[in-house]
């Protein structure tokens, strides 16, 4: 278990991260989300040990030097162009305390795992963006860290590359604790046990996806009519806070009025043909907008 308490970072008069506390359970994935400039990268930098916190602490249960137990993938990893992928990963392993006799083997293992077995003897200068990201993953996990930190791991990739990295992460989730930042909410929705919302350096919301959803979701219903005309007419007659998209009317239920009951009564009273009524679950994006706009 990893415990972060009251983490704060100030640069001069500016507070970039303010009093952030959270815990990461072993072998879970946590998404750190927030708009640009919310302090995500600064938080990760402090967790890596690269940046000293102004105050606060980071502890991994049972570990003295946490730098040994951390793997880090920056948003844009930069490699020494004159080294091959294997040489770089082997060096990374040795510097993180893997014994010299085992380092090469471990490097080959992780490079194969990330799908670079064909390219491991090539110099990194020839690598594409996707290959660099995979090499970045390899160097972050070669020493089997307890905590894997990733800064926007898939933001810069094309859909195929994104899929590949997400699949790798899902596999890794079985063996290690993952904390990753992202502003692409679909990715967070796909693989997360815990959400941490950062806004202006403060942790404004946290919890599992379901918890956050229940908290922020005001139930919404989608009523689909046969034609757009019907939809528009119903929306104007119904005296509800309703929006129309295509042939669907979206009704948001604020403070439980109207209830489902009342909504159905009105629907029955109207003469329009209804093809579908459903409850809509809010996407993370919508929750995000609400949290960000608090």
């Amino acid at each position: 278990m990893i415990t972060v308490s009251n983490l704060t970072k100030t640069f001069g008069a500016q507070t970039v991260v303010s009093n952030v506390s959270f815990t990461l359970e072993t072998n879970t994935a946590t998404a750190l989300i927030g708009p640009n400039g919310a302090g995500k990268t600064t938080t990760l930098s402090m967790l890596t040990g690269l940046l000293a916190p102004t105050s606060g602490s980071i502890e991994i249960a049972g570990v003295k030097d946490i730098r040994r137990e951390i793997g880090f993938l920056p948003q844009y990893p930069q490699f020494y162009p004159w080294l091959t992928a294997l040489e770089f990963t082997e060096m990374a392993a040795k510097l993180s305390g893997v014994p010299a006799s085992a380092a090469k083997k471990e490097a080959e293992r992780v490079l194969t795992f990330v799908g670079l077995e064909e390219a491991m003897k090539k110099k990194t200068v020839t690598f594409s963006g996707g290959m660099k990201q995979r090499l970045g993953m390899a160097q972050a996990i070669v020493h089997k860290p307890k905590l894997l930190l990733l800064d926007e791991p898939v933001s810069a990739l094309d859909p195929v590359g994104r899929r590949e990295i997400m699949n790798l992460l899902k596999e890794l989730q079985q063996q290690t604790t993952i904390l990753y930042s992202t502003h692409i909410l679909n990715d967070a929705e796909e693989m997360t046990d815990q959400l941490l919302f950062l806004r202006k350096g403060e942790l404004v919301e946290s919890g599992s996806l379901t918890e956050v959803r229940t908290k922020f979701e005001s139930p919404r219903y989608r009523i689909e009519f046969a034609t757009q005309e019907d939809a528009l007419q119903f929306a104007s007659q119904s005296q509800l806070s309703a929006t129309v998209t295509g042939s669907s009317v979206y009704v948001e239920i604020i403070e439980e009025r109207p209830t489902m009951q009342q909504l159905l009564e009105r629907l029955v009273a109207s003469k329009f043909a209804v093809t579908k009524v459903e409850r809509v679950t809010a996407s993370l994006e919508e929750i995000f907008m609400k949290v960000a706009g608090q």
């Binding site: 040990g49 690269l50 951390i70 880090f72 990893p77 490699f79 020494y80 510097l95």
Partner: peptide
């Protein structure tokens, strides 16, 4: 400056 050192500095060197 170009960020290559980051991957070294996060290790216990």
């Amino acid at each position: 400056q170009n960020g290559m050192a980051t991957l070294l500095y996060v290790r216990p060197i």
